[in-house]
Structures are given as C-alpha cells and as structure tokens.
C-alpha cells in the first residue's frame, strides 16, 4: 500500500465563541500538521478579518484568507472572507460569491460544507464548534451522507452550545469531543493511511 492519506481536507464551522475555540484547537495541533483546514467563522461584514492575524501569531499553521480560484495546500489554514460565501469546486479550487445570506450568515457554514462534501466525498473531515445558531448542521449531514468523518464539539464544553446541539440533532456524529481532544484526533488522522 502506498502511504496515501485517507483524508484530504478538514472543514470547520464556528460562530459565537469561535475565536477562542479556534485558538485552543490550533494550539493542540502538531507543528507538522499537513491537512488543509478550510474555515468559516461568522464575522461581521466589515471586519478586517483580524482572526487571520491572531491565528497566524500562534505559529502553528500558515493562516490566510481564502482567495478565489485558489487550490488548498497541505499545512495551510484558509479563512472565508467577511461578506462572501466560500464554495469548493469539484477540482477543489475555491469560489467566492456574494449570493444572499444563508441562515442569516455570509459566509455560511452550510454553503462551505455542502460544496466541500461533494468535492471531497469520503476524504473530508467536517467539524462544528461553538455558536449561537444552527448554521452548518445541514452541511455536516451532507458530509456524513457522502462518507466523510463528522466531529462536533461537546456542547457541554462549548462557549455557546446551540450550534453543536443543532448539529447533533441533524446527524449521527462520529465524535463528540472537547477541543483539545478534537486536536488530538486530527493529529492522529494525519497518520492514518488508506
């Protein structure tokens, strides 16, 4: 068997409380972490995406805003720009759109998750973190349907628990874990071979 990785990308959705959750998650990742992370954090439309600087300062992964047509690279984390939806194309390149809000959000987690699910099928990991709405639960369900791995932050450990709870109601999740254990799991997935 060649050492091809079972998983090719990780999508993460977070909302209220997301900044701290993402920081904790990043701190737990091994420094050589290779899977691309594609992240939608709900953020105000005119934000300067300060999240990118904060996560970059942790010096774990290279963190950047997702550019249109960019192809995700190993070991890089991509953040959806404020006021745009982020979609993944069949060739894995990013599309940004200014379509209407979905679940009152732009970027919307469902839009990222549903398109990434189809692009990566069973090679995708989807993670829902803290948040005060239910964006992402449809998308997480789709990831599961297409054979991907779905992880939800244990609601009892989330700063705001409605988003993880909505996700659990929508899908039979594979793992329900606190943030540090999600990081440990991701580090292990890295090594998992086909």
């Amino acid at each position: 068997m060649t050492g091809k990785r079972r998983y090719e990308a990780v999508v993460i959705g977070s909302s209220a409380g997301g900044l701290n959750a993402l920081k904790t998650l990043f701190m737990g990742l091994d420094s050589g972490f290779r899977l691309p992370l594609i992240i939608v954090q709900h953020i105000s439309p005119d934000s300067d995406n300060y999240l990118i600087h904060i996560l970059n300062d942790l010096r774990k992964l290279r963190v950047k805003e997702a550019d249109e047509k960019e192809i995700p690279m190993p070991g890089v984390a991509y953040i959806a720009p404020p006021n745009y939806h982020l979609l993944v194309e069949p060739d894995h390149s990013f599309t940004l759109t200014v379509d209407e809000r979905v679940n009152y959000a732009r970027p919307s987690i469902d839009v990222l998750f549903e398109t990434a699910a189809e692009a990566y099928r069973h090679k995708l990991v989807g993670i829902i973190l803290t948040g005060a709405n239910s964006d992402g639960s449809k998308g997480l369900k789709r990831i599961k349907e297409l054979g991907g791995l779905v992880i939800v932050q244990d609601p009892d450990t989330a700063e705001v628990d409605s988003m993880p709870r909505a996700a659990i109601l929508a899908t039979a999740v594979d793992h329900l874990l606190p943030l540090d254990e999600i990081a440990t799991l991701l580090n292990k997935l890295e090594d998992e071979k086909k």
Partner: peptide, 8 residues
C-alpha cells in the same frame, strides 16, 4: 460559470 455555484 463556477460549477459549484450553478449546482447550488
């Protein structure tokens, strides 16, 4: 046009 967009 973008395929993922059209499909949605």
């Amino acid at each position: 046009y973008s395929q993922a967009h059209i499909k949605r």
